[in-house]
Amino acid sequence: MQDSHPAAQSLISKPVWALGEEPAFRPGARVHVSSRSPIGHYRVPLYLRGKTGSVVSVIEPAGLNNEEEGFGRNAGGRRHYYRVGFEMSEVWAGYPGPVRDRLFIEVFETWLERA
């Protein structure tokens, strides 16, 4: 992350990072999973669409969009995946277990928007 090494940073002027290199979300950010419906290939399961959760961590390194990889694109722009936590009761109406139970899943950046 761009601000994680202040000692080193002080010696040089701030270089510009390529688009997508810097994570768009930080741990703790509230995020909303898009409710769009791709056909053909996706890795965001239907049960998660439209749900709101919190970013737990940024997965490094950034990766390709796996909806594109599914059609053989092995290069291209990279974005981060995020480990996102959801309350079970947010994902499942009528979840029978205790309210503290949670679900965690990794979601590609372009699926998330700030909640």
Partner: peptide, 14 residues
């Protein structure tokens, strides 16, 4: 070899 990447395999199975 990226002849068939893992994601292509998943898509192909689906």
């Amino acid at each position: 070899h990226k002849i068939i990447n893992t994601e292509e395999k998943r898509r192909g199975v689906a």
